[in-house]
Amino acid sequence: GGLNMTSEYELNSLMGKSDQIFADKVGELSKSGVEVTLHLNGSLGLKSADNLDAVSDGVVDIADTLGGVLAGSDPIFLLSSLPFIVSGPKEARALYDAARPAYEEFFRQNGQILLYASPWLPSGFWANKPIDTVESLNGWKLRTYDANGTRTMIAAGASPIQLSWADVVPQLATGGIDGVLTSSEGGATAKFDEHLSHFTEINYALPLNFRHMNAAAFESLPEDQQKAIREAAAVAEEAGWAAATDLVEKIYTQLGGAGVTIVREVQPELRTHLNDAAKTVIEDWRGKAGEAGAKVLHAYGEAVGRQY
């Protein structure tokens, strides 16, 4: 039989590649006993925000979902996009490991299973200047991608703007905005190099995408096929996390060739300033996420040797 999987990402993107690996691996490991039909580019008409219900209702069997859109159902999904709590892929993995039981529980309660999750590259500042001092942030008009980013950047003295992704490039071309908070990869895909000259590596966050499956659909499969799916998920997960480390330098080289300056060093004062700006957001999240959230954050602190 066939399983339908939806993903709003294109084949060449980090998430699209990972989805393809997963789909291919399922077919390979189950010796074509079960095939995953992958619908990329949101070609089924589903966006990340639809996926939880779509999988629950059996519209599709498997979905690739941006974590942040699930925050309206459970605040735990804002964890991976909290500002400046991870410094890179390694800490992001530690955070994921600490939170995984909570994620699994959420999907279980919704009649689903968590297959795997993988991160985006670290988000940073795309601009026409290095954003490496506190002053350079002042009044800087940038597009942010979620509520946390907006609040953090306001607190930091910048002027965040909310725009849909399709409007970002026209606004950059006409000078409607001066910059974008997104990953190096996100900017490279949308050809920001035609409009912007600098990417400042600030490691704002490494948001996660989740692949989840309808539990009834999973349990209706024979044991060996279930095993194939679990194994394929593990392979895709490792590949996804490895890509988050390996791809960074590759993208930097590519961007360098396109004339983008990568700014890796920022003033320590800026770091402190941004961490201060993020504090309210993190505290608010703690309030919302309650005991479960506090537990995860504490476990993460233990793992990386910091206090949360």
Binding site: G139, K141, A147, T150, S159, P160, I161, Q162, S164, G176
Partner: peptide, 13 residues
């Protein structure tokens, strides 16, 4: 808001 006050309603779309 965006052009004259450098801010946004943040919920337009």
């Amino acid at each position: 808001l965006r052009n004259f006050f450098d801010t946004s309603t943040f919920v337009l779309d």
